[in-house]
Design a binder for these strands. Structure first.
Lengths: 341, 341
DNA sequence: CTGTTAGCGCATTCAC
DNA sequence: GTGAATGCGCTAACAG
């Protein structure tokens, strides 16, 4: 049988209360006594039973998810995953609240972060915007002792504890290799469509894509990036115009959301053009386009995994526990029409 | 506050013991009383606190993993993941035992399955061999009330509760499309290397690969499958011979393990031949080969995920709980040299 | 058949 | 500073 607090108490020759004080680093124990208890703990190899502790404490984890109110399928999916997590709240001892903020507006994000009552929240997950004021707001929160996890888009150079999302530079490079190899030895122009260069994930994808393209596929030349604000309408217009004005385009990398608009534009061109297309995020739209052959590959991040991971990480951090690193790594999923889930 | 057994007892006007009997479907309760309790449960929306229940029971989950003693990196990795799970045993209330059996020997697997003391084991995970005697042994175990999960390779047509592994037909199709597209419009022969047609996963991969090749890449013709028994030496010899004897080979699909031998053969040929290669399972060998450009893509199943999933599923089944389906889906990972973990 | 009671491992009052 | 006692939600003897 695995040792308990009673065993510690017996070995150290103190009472349960004292053991507990030491375990939870609370004051009111003489240095010598503390030493004795800590030695006993090490000696018998005690490890705390978290489940029992949580039961006794009636512990709840009040978590906050700050999500952008973007009207695209990926963000809808992310919202849905958080709501599903809310549905599991009782069995996971979590109490999750969603704060919606306008997309791409740093001030709104800062306001949301600052609104959080420190002490009343055990952890925060946010889809970060890469702006200085957001950085400071995050740092303030962390300094106040609140665990913070970035979701989908990271915020480097801050003290956030963890990033639950894919490696976007690797994503860009992967997209470039797929596009380059799928195009064989062809020569022509490649179009890139982003949401906004304000968010780090999009910038990084573009960076990785451009770098590998330059290194390995010199016969393909990159057109200046288009910014569609992850909005289907805008994306549609931008792509349509570009295809009309440039007959040399043979490949497209859509690295943001709002692919509905892209797909519409591609379908309108129809069989006129043989294009190879790589897009991000598996949604009902990209899935259908993949099946139809309108899109050749979809790179994806599993929103459900990201949300579950963020929760695990925040909880673990809230009570100083360890994690299974491999379990928290968010993979870059590559979908062809053959391996759709 | 969420309702407890006390609330049920109060509403139903019975004692805790009776509530418990109903909750755990134990005898010794009159029909009417049972009804009354069940109604109270529904009325107040009670859900059992599993952690508290396990604490009170001192519950342990004695699980058994039956693994083949194959000498290849993938199986070594799988073993390692199970051992890591054993390291987490105390916090997960599991007691995991590994039974090693010779690879590809149905009788050994059957013996291992039959050796399991029913009642003393809360669940079994096994890398299945697709043979009739194995089927019956699994069915016997399930009939005796032991939850069974197949790992890596499935056993359809049995009553096993769950399969923790990838969709191997989809894997084969995906490999075919990658190879086909990477080869552009080239014409030539494609070689397939399997471990053994005895295991279902290899058969299915080949099936998916052949089907898609025939459908979409008629200019590539498939050579008869080679069986390397997942053994590096054998694989090396088979591949070397094939490459020497046939100059038309332009692509290779290695759908089993033992890739060390394949890679050695490829390196010996060196720059003499421009080959496009897709292999399975990310190991130190395939990873290095991917980086070197010897292999173009690696399809992988995350052994860690498979093991953790098998454990979650067995535990959930052992006490009749639900799962998060998406969390238990084992993805087909596609690795290019750019998105290696 | 049903109820009382004493834990599981830990945290937390409230005395001493 | 330290300890004894009580309870978290649930289960399992043991009585009745």
């Amino acid at each position: 049988m695995r040792p308990t607090v009673h065993d510690i108490a017996a070995v150290a020759g103190v009472s349960l209360a004292t053991v507990d004080r030491v375990l939870n680093q609370r004051p009111g124990v003489r240095g010598v006594t503390r030493q004795r208890v800590e030695e006993a703990i090490r000696e018998i190899g005690y490890v705390r039973d978290v489940a029992a502790a949580n039961l006794a404490k009636g512990r709840l984890y009040p978590l906050v998810f700050i999500l952008p109110a973007s009207d695209n399928s990926f963000m809808h999916g992310l919202h849905a995953e958080v709501r599903q997590a809310i549905g599991r709240a009782s069995s996971e001892r979590t109490d999750i609240r969603i704060i919606e903020v306008p997309a791409f507006v740093p001030a709104a994000l800062v306001a949301a972060l600052d609104s959080l009552a420190v002490g009343a929240t055990a952890g925060v997950a946010l889809v970060a915007i890469d702006a200085p004021e957001v950085r400071s707001a995050v740092d303030r929160l962390v300094a106040a002792g609140v665990p913070v996890v970035t979701l989908v888009s990271d915020l480097t150079g801050t003290s956030r504890h963890h990033y639950a999302g894919v490696d976007n530079i690797a994503a860009g490079r992967t997209a470039a290799r797929l596009l380059g190899r799928f195009l064989g030895g062809l020569e022509g122009d490649v179009l890139t469509l982003a949401g906004s260069m304000l968010v780090r994930d999009h910038r990084e994808r573009l960076e990785g894509f451009s770098a590998l393209m330059a290194e390995e596929f010199p016969r393909l030349s990159l057109l200046p990036v288009l910014e569609g604000r992850d909005d289907p309408e805008t994306a549609n217009r931008l792509i349509s115009d570009a295809l009309s004005n440039n007959g040399r385009i043979i490949g497209i990398y859509s690295l943001g959301a709002g692919n509905r608009g892209l797909i519409k534009a591609l379908k309108e061109r129809g069989a006129q053009r043989e294009l190879t297309v790589v897009a991000h995020e598996l949604t009902e739209h990209t899935r259908a386009a993949l099946k139809d052959g309108v899109i050749d590959a979809v790179l994806n991040q599993d929103a459900g995994h990201e949300v579950r991971s963020a929760i695990r990480v925040l909880k673990a951090h809230a009570d100083g526990l360890g994690l299974i690193a491999a379990q928290e790594r968010i993979r870059l999923d590559i979908f062809l029409k053959d391996n759709l889930p």
